[in-house]
Each structure stands twice: as structure tokens, then as C-alpha cells.
Design a protein around this nucleic acid. Structure first.
Length: 466
RNA sequence: GUCCCCUUCGUCUAGCCCGGCCCAGGACACCGCCCUUUCACGGCGGCGACACCGGUUCAAAUCCGGUAGGGGACGCCA
């Protein structure tokens, strides 16, 4: 056990995306490695955009990935009174003040500053006013001026900002609700977070948060800013690069362990290792080994990892995970082969569960049509002969395993002076409708002799024009 | 515009802190060959990078300086 306390703090304005998932993963990994505490906090201070659906989607994503939290989920919206209290305190101590500038005025000044090439920061209009007009106001933090604010980032090293860069940020809106930068500080402090691991896009917020910690008399935690994830064009990853939602990957037939493995290697490495079990990840993870530069999301590598985990996966579990993909295709498996045995014949041939479902279809639905061009490579007489011989052999044999069936097909080849492809291809077409399928011995074993013979006779009749 | 960050194969990265073992290693993708009962799996091989310029040094991917490029932030969003 250690006193390390980390948190993942998403805002519920959408689903859990891969970037957030990776941040959550790094937090989780560090907590598990050090025996610390992983806290889940929902940052819903933006009442306008936060939704219950998003919260559910995020929790669902976390659960699917197996990122379990020790405390929470906590909702910032439950702590509004607490934030108010701290705002009052800063106000009373003169560390914050009321600002009566309207949003429109501010916007205009920002634009002007921008156009004149100046930093668009708040000009301090209300910083020292002593009147108290009866008008709507926000509360601003009186940020300390002079010197620099620096911190030692666990990933990026020392980062320093001149204090002049920091303006008086709003900590409480006109409607009385607190703003993000203020809430995180209060929450991280009261939740005794020791290490803040979050996205790169927060580095600029860090110095102002540090000033807030100091003004409030809280100890400053450590920070680790993880680089962003980019799309193939090196722009921030977004929907136009493909799926970004964690759950979308589940629906596309990815295994959670594949996504996790992919994500942990995006920005972090341990020598030349590529495959990590959950335990290995926890054992080897080290926040200091996270790279400093942004990384491009590479779907091909994810696919490769997924194929790896499908190959290595337990057929029973895979069968369970495959079910929804089959159901979506209207497949009823009750009258067909046991799904786990079907899975075994497909594990080496599918990169995703979706692909596996597609390839599994023929086991449960006899071919409605046949690959004509593949069939055309053989003449009718040959086909008729092969089907006749095989059907006969199959209906009389005692064989039951793929190996035994394959031996039978070899014998048939020898007896008739046929090459294996001359027998294998026609059979595959009769059994599955096409040429891309498992070995014929495997198919016969899982389909069963009876059904196999039936399918062979059906094609045989089709060819004979019956 | 200002501030902050980043820069090794197409991509993820090892190496960089503690210069020589690196004419730079692994993985994905791609190409070729092999295996083969189709499709895959697998095996073997190939292609392919230290952003640029200068400095320090006997020696630099590794240290220093600059340039360029990319990204992020600048909100009564988080």
C-alpha cells in the first residue's frame, strides 16, 4: 500500500474516447503498480453541456476496459456549496475580486488585443475598483504578479511560465457556478490527490492552478502531462479519422485487452516489448518512461494486436463475446454446431469478432449461392465424380475428427489420382459456398458428417441441373 | 500574435540522462520467398529514419547553440 492517490476526471459531454481512455489507463496502471488509490471524478460544472447519458457511456467504457476505480464516481455538481465557500474565503482575504465587465466587452477587448498582436489577457479593469455597483458580476482570482511559476513535470521535465503571462482568471461565473480551473484545484486538494496525470492540453492551466493551490494554502501535487493522440494527418484525433469512442471498438469486434495493449504502447514503451498482459503492464509501467511527443493512432497495429488476442483467446469466452455479432446478423445457433468449436476453426483467420461472425455464418446457414468463378475452374464431370465419391465415403466412415477426415480426403486423392486442390476446393464450395474457409477436415468435423453430406448432395444436384 | 511543448524508418518506438558496443535495434504496414487443401496462421528475407545548420570532442542520434517544421494554450468549455 502507498499513499499515492490519482484520479481520472472526464467531463460528461460525450462518450469515453480513446485519448481519455489512455489517460485513465495510465492513472490506473500507476495506482495498481504502487498500491495507491484510483479515483473517478466527473467534472460536470458545465451544467449546460453535461448529460446523464454521457456519464453512463463513460462508466460503461471504463468497465468494458476493466479500469476499476477505488473511490467515486464523485460529481463536481455535488460540491457547489464547497466551491462557494472557498470563493468567499478568497474574496474575504482580498485574493479575489468582483468583476463587472460584460462578456461582450471582454470579447471585444480580446479581439482587439489579438489584432494588435498582444496576448489576449484580461486587462485588470476591475482589479482595483472600490465601488460595488448593483450589476451582474463574476469573481476573478487576483493572480500574483512577478517572477515565474514553475513545476517539475513527471513526463516533460521542468516547465516554467513568466507570471506576466497569467491573467486574473474567472473562478465564479455570473450565475454563481464555479469554473473548471477553480474546481479542479479544490477537488484535487480535498481529495488529497498526490499526482495529477492528465492530457497535455492542460499544461497551460497548471501554473494558474499552482497559484490557486498556494493562495488557498494547499500542498501542490505532482503533475504528469501525457501527450495527445493524433490522427493519420497528425491533427488532433477526431471522428473524421474514424472511430474515437471506446465502445465503438467493442462494436467493431475488438477485444478490450487488445485496445488496452494498444493504448499502453502508444506513448509508452518497455524496451522492445509489444505484448503485455494486464499483470505485466502493471509490473512494468513507469510514468517516467512515457514519451514526450504526441503519437499517431494506428488502426493497423490495433488490428494486429486484436488478431493476436483472438488467436490466443479462450474459445468459450470468445464464443460469448461473438454472440452479439451473430445475433445482429440474425443467426440462430441452437440448431447448428456448438459455437466454441466454430470459434476454434476461425481464431487464426479473423482479426475482429465482426470478421469472425461473418466467416461463421455458413456454419449456421447452408449456402444460398456458390462462388461461380471458383466453380468454373473445374469441369462438371470432375465435380460430379468428386462429390459422389466423397459423399459416399463420408456416409460410411466412422471418422469423427478433422485429422481423420483429412486422412480420408488424402486417400481419395490417391485412389483417384487427384491433386488435393481438385478435391478440397469443390468441397469447400459445397460446404461453405465459397473458397475462403477453414480446412475441409475442420469444417466437416464441426458441421458434422450428416450435414456435410447433405450440403455436398445439394451442390451435386445443382450442378446436375436437378 | 504571445506563451508553452515536441522533432529517430510511412506509423508506434529502442537507444539519448551516464558520448564510442549504432554505417541506428524491435514492432505494425508494405514487398518477395517458403510452408500449404482455399483463406489465413507461421517461418525467412527485403524496403525504410537520427528535421536542418553550426559548435564542443580523437569520436555525437546522444552534449551546447541556433534555424525550420509541427502541436497545444490564450473561454463566464473542461
Amino acid at each position: 500500500m502507498s499513499d499515492l492517490r490519482v484520479r481520472f476526471a472526464p467531463s460528461p459531454t460525450g462518450y469515453l474516447h480513446v485519448g481519455g481512455a489512455r489517460t485513465a489507463l495510465f492513472n490506473w496502471l500507476l495506482a495498481r503498480k504502487q498500491g495507491g488509490t484510483f479515483i473517478l471524478r466527473i467534472e460536470d460544472t458545465d451544467v449546460e453541456r453535461s448529460t446523464r447519458e454521457s456519464v453512463d457511456a463513460i462508466l460503461q467504457g471504463m468497465e468494458w476496459l476493466g479500469l476499476d476505480w477505488d473511490e467515486g464516481p464523485f460529481y463536481q455538481s455535488d460540491s457547489f456549496p464547497l466551491y462557494r465557500e472557498y470563493v468567499q474565503r478568497l474574496l474575504a482575504e482580498g485574493k479575489a475580486y468582483r468583476c463587472y465587465c460584460s462578456a461582450a466587452e471582454l470579447e471585444a477587448r480580446r479581439e482587439l488585443a489579438m489584432r494588435e498582436g498582444r496576448k489576449p489577457k484580461y486587462d485588470g479593469t476591475c482589479r482595483d475598483r472600490s465601488d460595488h455597483p448593483d450589476a451582474p458580476s463574476v469573481v476573478r482570482f487576483r493572480t500574483p504578479q512577478g517572477g515565474e511559476v514553475a513545476f517539475n513535470d513527471l513526463i516533460k521535465g521542468r516547465i516554467a511560465f513568466p507570471a506576466e503571462e497569467l491573467d486574473d482568471l474567472i473562478i465564479q461565473r455570473t450565475d454563481g457556478t464555479p469554473t473548471y480551473n477553480f474546481c479542479v484545484v479544490i477537488d484535487d486538494a480535498t481529495m488529497k490527490i498526490t499526482t495529477v496525470i492528465r492530457g497535455d492540453d492542460h499544461v497551460n492551466n497548471t501554473p494558474r492552478q499552482i497559484q490557486l493551490y498556494q493562495a488557498l494554502g494547499f500542498p501542490v501535487p505532482e503533475f504528469a502531462h501525457v501527450p495527445m493522440i493524433l490522427g493519420s494527418d497528425k491533427a488532433r484525433l477526431s471522428k473524421r479519422h474514424g472511430a474515437t469512442s471506446v465502445m465503438a471498438y467493442r462494436d467493431m469486434g475488438f477485444l478490450p485487452e487488445a485496445l488496452i495493449n494498444y493504448l499502453v504502447r502508444l506513448g509508452w514503451s518497455h524496451g522492445d516489448d509489444e505484448i503485455f498482459s494486464r499483470e505485466e503492464m502493471i509490473q512494468r509501467f513507469d510514468i517516467g518512461s512515457v514519451g514526450r511527443s504526441a503519437g499517431v493512432f494506428n488502426p493497423d497495429k490495433l488490428l494486429w494486436l486484436n488478431a493476436h488476442y483472438i488467436k490466443a483467446g479462450d474459445p468459450e469466452r470468445l464464443a460469448d463475446l461473438l454472440m452479439p455479432h451473430l445475433t445482429r446478423r440474425g443467426v440462430v445457433i441452437s440448431n447448428g454446431p456448438v459455437l466454441a468449436t466454430v470459434v476454434k476453426t476461425l481464431q487464426e483467420r479473423a482479426q475482429t469478432l465482426e470478421e469472425m461472425a461473418e466467416r461463421a455464418l455458413f456454419y449456421y446457414q447452408a449456402p444460398q449461392g456458390y462462388d461461380e468463378t471458383a466453380l468454373a475452374k473445374f469441369d462438371g464431370d470432375h465435380l460430379a465424380k468428386v462429390f459422389q465419391v466423397v459423399a459416399e465415403k463420408l456416409s460410411t466412415t466412422q471418422a469423427g475428427t478433422a485429422t481423420e477426415f483429412d486422412a480420408i480426403f488424402k486417400d481419395i486423392c490417391a485412389e483417384n489420382a487427384w491433386k488435393m486442390p481438385q478435391v478440397g476446393q469443390p468441397l469447400r464450395i459445397a460446404l461453405s459456398g465459397g473458397t475462403q474457409a477453414p480446412g475441409i477436415g475442420e469444417i466437416v468435423e464441426t458441421l458434422g458428417r450428416e450435414e456435410s453430406v447433405r450440403r455436398i448432395r445439394v451442390l451435386s444436384n445443382v450442378i446436375a441441373g436437378v
